[in-house]
Simulated assay, not measured.
Amino acid sequence: NEYYGSTETGGVVFCTSAQWLSHPGTVGKAQPGADVRVTDAEGNSLPAGEVGEVCARFLDIADFIYHKDDAKRQATAKVGLIATGDLGYLDADGFLYLCDRSKDMIISGGVNIYPAEIEGVLHRMPGVADCAVFGVPDDEYGEAVHACVQAQPGASLSEDDVKAYLRDRLSGFKIPRSVDFRQELPREDTGKIFKRKLREPFWAGRTTRI
């Protein structure tokens, strides 16, 4: 059994092993007393299957909005929810699925691309120890997909190898425009890959980040 939530919301979503087997990939359904919605940028609830930001709270806990100066959280405050910063969608049965963190989403030519999906495929590629996917500047499309790959010891991988592997498994617009290889990927104290350190050099000197 698993719970999903944030520091501010608590474990608002719960999933049993049986539920996961019947709805593969889900993190579960809203717990009794929890209000879980997927919203657009204005805080409006989205229909089933449409990706937006996951917002939630327990109804019997006092309203608490973190970072009140954040426009997105101000929008969700209007409906009394807390924005988690996660992107996801609800299915017709009310099960929640996560796509990525909103801050990591790539917008290329007006199309939303979720790095976590690409990373999930790359992690299954023979010879790949770890990877990070993020957006880099592109004068035509705003952002282009870039992948940093850490190869397993002794593995020999090329940019063409990575692109060919992904091309067989993902839509064309999700294939990284560029790939570079690192001996080791930087990590935060929590152990998570420090994407900002990887991303920043590509955006140095830019006044916008999209």
Rank of each mutant, 00 (worst) to 15 (best):
G28Q: 00
Y165G: 00
L21I: 08
L59Y: 01
D63L: 07
D86N: 07
I175V: 15
N112I: 02
G43Q: 04
S45H: 14
S171M: 05
K68T: 03
E119W: 14
R57V: 02
K29P: 00
I210M: 15
I175D: 09
L170P: 06
I118S: 09
L185P: 11
E119D: 14
I106Y: 02
F181R: 14
K29H: 00
A75K: 14
T190I: 11
L21Y: 12
T7L: 04
P115S: 08
M125E: 05
N1T: 04
G110Y: 10
V179L: 03
A18W: 12
V27F: 01
I107H: 08
G5E: 09
T39D: 08
K103P: 06
K78C: 11
D93P: 14
A151F: 03
E140C: 13
K195F: 14
V136A: 08
Y97T: 00
C148Q: 06
I82Y: 14
D70V: 01
C55L: 12
L96E: 11
P137F: 05
E2W: 02
W20E: 13
K192R: 06
A129Y: 08
Q183W: 14
A147L: 05
F134T: 06
C55D: 08
D100P: 08
D189P: 06
Y66F: 03
G52D: 04
F194S: 06
V27Q: 02
N112C: 05
G154I: 00
Y4M: 07
D104N: 10
I107Y: 13
P115F: 00
S17P: 10
D130Y: 03
T7C: 05
G120D: 10
T190Y: 03
A75T: 07
F58V: 07
D91T: 06
N1K: 10
E8W: 05
W20A: 07
A30E: 04
I193E: 07
G154D: 08
V54I: 04
F95W: 07
Y165A: 04
V13D: 04
D189A: 13
D139F: 13
V12E: 07
Y3G: 03
Y141S: 03
K163R: 11
F14Q: 15
V111S: 13
G43I: 05
D93T: 12
E8L: 04
R177L: 10
A164C: 04
V145G: 11
E50S: 14
A144C: 02
D86R: 02
F173N: 11
I61P: 13
G127C: 01
P153A: 02
V179N: 11
G120N: 13
T16C: 00
E188V: 03
D91A: 01
D63G: 11
Y89N: 07
S158P: 04
M125L: 10
H123W: 13
V51F: 04
T7N: 02
K192P: 06
S108L: 11
F14L: 11
P115A: 03
V13S: 12
G172S: 15
D93W: 09
I113N: 06
G110F: 15
G127V: 02
A62I: 01
D100R: 04
V179F: 02
P201V: 09
E2V: 05
G205M: 13
G205S: 13
V79I: 09
I175T: 07
T76K: 05
D69S: 08
Y3Q: 03
T7S: 12
E2N: 08
G11P: 14
L46M: 13
D130V: 09
S6E: 08
I193L: 12
S108W: 07
L81Y: 11
I210W: 14
Y141T: 10
C55Q: 07
G88E: 01
